[in-house]
Design a protein around this nucleic acid. Structure first.
Lengths: 259, 259
DNA sequence: AGTAGCCTATGACGTAAGGGGAGAGTCAAG
DNA sequence: CTTGACTCTCCCCTTACGTCATAGGCTACT
């Protein structure tokens, strides 16, 4: 078992030594070993725990809350990672809105006035901090994710096809990255959930005669039957990736969509 | 001219009234009008300024620095918005790295061990945030920062070749990502500055008979003349990328190194 | 054995960006 | 002329560390 000194761990994780001292005193991250001279030594478990801490910090959780989350008896590392993923995706979307706000502001300043209301001037800034919390909760309940995402997208009102296409390509990239993972793993399934929602936005609600499960499975079958579908995704045909997608989608349909 | 009360503006921008009070006392955002009863009233200019403040805050600038930036006589709103755009794109990239880190961590936990080093466990975390800061600074102060970086690196004493190599590969990746951008843009130039410092660490100080500008331009020419250099960078030869690098490096040499 | 150069520990104080409340005045409406 | 929603100006509190200060530890070289 390898052990890290404070400085080594600090450098590894990109934090300061003082930060580790601080976390120790708070009881947030305790070294697994103390030498005779009271030197702190951190092991494998602490590496993972520190990573979790940094994820929650990235999402603006206060340290006390992070501690209570990580110390909770029902804390699950995998579901936590899954929820981090979703929350960070929300943040990335927020950044996209900010970039949009910049473009619009620039257009306004260029002289083409009147296209930007005062409200739009602040689109994308942290109006709701509770958003991260909700995502946290949402991630825990699988199928409910889909429902909420759907209703949220519906609330957006007008379909923004550009955004949908951008999202689709992002999902595709994520899935390509995950092609060697287990199709039933949370990481893959999270992407499949996004894919499902994305597809439904194109389809509309009434597809498949109302039987959503079979409709989605049908699409999954298309991916193996007609390799041109994977080509449009990947830029080239790839039976192995098609099979991977198929398994992931069928699993999703059976576990999340079937009732 | 429409005017907003503290509460109205706070709601509009998604900040608290207390925050506006705070900004007023700091001199960061002063109301254009005070009523007889000393009520604060904000006009159009303040809306824009608050937007700027929020952008800089989003990028983790301290308030005092924001103030000095916004109050500088040569402050230009349009170029500021452009640099926000670039910085926010960097942040979005960082989020993508974080998402990738999550996926990899999940795969590791699924049992396929050994594919993830301890370092990779923290890819995308604040180490890179400091990096973003430095890039931002480099873009602004050009030559001065290069000098500082150099002296800082010199203070490190012994050459750490592993670190240098890692840095070089990081720079290369950044440049590949930026290959479609303007070679003279701050984002590209910031990477070129890193590249320059990195190269000098390998070279030593006395290269080129003391004429650094010409030496660096010579290296730039190498990239177009001998495509094997881009191959070692990219894994394959690419004249277009070589030309891009050349232009970026020549521009850097002429604007930052020439005296 | 000495000492240089780095590492580590604890403790105490400092800081940034507000939060939260006290106590008091203001404004529009009924 | 009172009620409810705003607003003002102090002023102390909080979070997540940064920054010394002081003291000891480890390893290497002489």
């Amino acid at each position: 078992m390898k052990h890290y000194s404070v400085r080594k761990l600090a450098k590894l994780a990109g934090v300061s030594v003082r930060t580790l001292h601080h976390y120790d005193r708070l009881g947030l991250l305790r070294p697994s070993v103390r030498t005779e001279a009271r030197y702190r030594l951190y092991g494998e478990d602490e590496l993972i725990r520190l990573q979790q801490i940094l994820f929650y910090k990235e999402l603006d959780f206060p340290l006390t809350e992070i501690k209570s989350i990580l110390d909770a008896p029902d804390f699950n590392l995998l579901t936590a990672l899954q929820s981090h993923r979703q929350a960070l995706e929300v943040r990335r979307d927020r950044l996209s809105v900010l970039l949009d706000t910049i473009d619009k502001t620039m257009v306004k300043l260029k002289g083409k006035e009147g296209m930007l209301t005062d409200e739009e001037l602040y689109a994308g800034f942290p109006r709701e901090r509770a958003e991260a919390y909700r995502q946290e909760a949402v991630a825990k309940y699988g199928a409910r994710v889909v429902e909420e995402s759907e209703s949220k997208l519906r609330q957006m009102g007008k379909l923004n096809f550009d955004a949908l296409k951008a999202d689709a390509s992002d999902i595709a990239q994520s899935l390509v990255r995950l092609r060697d993972a287990d199709p039933t793993s949370p990481a893959v399934q999270a992407q499949i959930a996004r894919h499902y929602v994305n597809i439904r936005m194109f389809w509309g609600d009434s597809v498949g005669g109302g039987n959503v499960t079979e409709a989605y499975k049908g699409l999954a079958q298309l991916y193996v039957d007609d390799l041109r579908y994977t080509a449009s995704y990947l830029g080239h045909e790839d039976p192995a990736f098609a099979a991977f997608l198929n398994r992931a989608m069928v699993y999703f349909a059976d576990t999340q969509l079937a009732q």
